[in-house]
């Protein structure tokens, strides 16, 4: 297991180098840079000398290959540099928002999984009955309703019934857990709905498939209680494909919540991403892309390791 994990970690290095190279050159292909946006962004006229000196200060005048070398050297020493716009370290900019985004993602996952398992299971067990149809409608809704719009509905509901809106400033959970949770539960629900729908549908279809397997018939032939047939024999097998979906969706929640963050006025990774792109803040974009790549790889690894935990066929080759 340890060896396998190590092997997988080593295999991520070429992937990360590839991502780094791609993002670096793609950014340079797009016309414009942070200096132009900053100084000429509002249609102001600034002399070429000022721009040149600003570029020189940020190192943007150096030949591309030097910039690339600096960047790769930075990556190798785990130094992501400083934001070209705010001049603060990239790691600091990211970690400020990551805490919030990560918390929303985790809360959404808990919400989604806790709801999806019973939802998907009952739908599969009561296939073709009204319960199944209700679950199907609910999950189709989750897939088709954009989460920002659902978020807006939640906000309106809160305002209409309780005349209350979540606070605008972020309170970390270790400062005031209640204030923190009451603020983040709503966006978590807004994005968790879609998440839950995806996972519930996965569980429903994979459970239906598993229930047709021969070993379920064997379990019943042994006289196992129906409840145990479902929980012990069927669900354990049916959850395997769901783990993959849960992982992919979770990784997506980090950095994929641009509009939802806007609706709830959250200062998260998605917002930072949009900001840094519109500012052509190369170092920050590069840092965030690398962070996301690492995150995706990490989640995938966790999913694969979870598979090994749940499935002895993988554990013992």
């Amino acid at each position: 297991m340890l060896r396998y994990t190590l092997q997988r970690l080593l295999m991520t290095i070429p992937t990360l180098i590839g991502v780094a190279v791609l993002v670096f050159f793609m950014l340079r292909v797009v016309p414009g840079d942070v200096v132009e946006v900053k100084l000429r962004g509002d249609g102001g006229t600034v002399s070429q000398e000022v721009i040149d000196s600003e570029r020189k200060r940020l190192g943007l005048d150096k030949p591309l290959i030097y910039q690339f070398g600096d960047y790769m050297y930075g990556l190798a020493t785990l130094n992501l540099g400083t934001s070209m716009w705010t001049e603060r370290p990239v790691t600091e900019e990211i970690s400020l928002r990551l805490e919030l985004s990560l918390q929303v993602a985790i809360m959404a996952t808990i919400f989604a999984v806790l709801l999806a398992i019973p939802l998907g299971t009952t739908a599969a067990l009561m296939r073709g009955t009204w319960v199944d149809y209700v679950v199907r409608i609910v999950t189709i809704g989750g897939l088709s309703i954009p989460s920002f719009w659902f978020g807006m509905l939640i906000m309106m509901g809160l305002l209409y019934y309780w005349n209350w809106l979540p606070p605008i400033t972020f309170t970390p959970i270790y400062v005031d857990p209640i204030a923190n949770l009451t603020q983040l539960i709503w966006p978590a629900m807004a994005v968790g709905y879609r998440y839950c729908a995806v996972v519930a549908r996965m569980i429903r279809s994979s459970l239906l498939e598993v229930l047709n397997e021969d070993y379920i018939r064997t379990a019943r032939a042994k006289g196992v209680f129906e409840k145990i047939v479902i929980s012990r024999h069927a669900l354990r097998n049916a959850l395997l494909p769901a783990i993959t979906v849960i992982g992919i969706e979770f990784a997506f929640l980090i950095g994929g919540l641009v509009v939802t963050e806007q609706v709830f006025n959250l200062n998260g990774i998605g917002k930072l991403f949009v900001q840094s792109v519109s500012r052509s803040d190369f170092t920050l974009i590069q840092g965030m892309v690398m962070m996301l790549a690492v995150f995706y790889i990490f989640v995938n690894l966790v999913v694969d390791l979870l598979y090994a935990v749940f499935d002895p066929r993988i554990r013992y080759g």
Partner: peptide
């Protein structure tokens, strides 16, 4: 008790 045809698929793969 009942014994089935396919020993390959009639045992639960995730239980010992």
């Amino acid at each position: 008790a009942m014994i089935f045809q396919e020993p390959m698929t009639s045992l639960n793969p995730v239980l010992s």
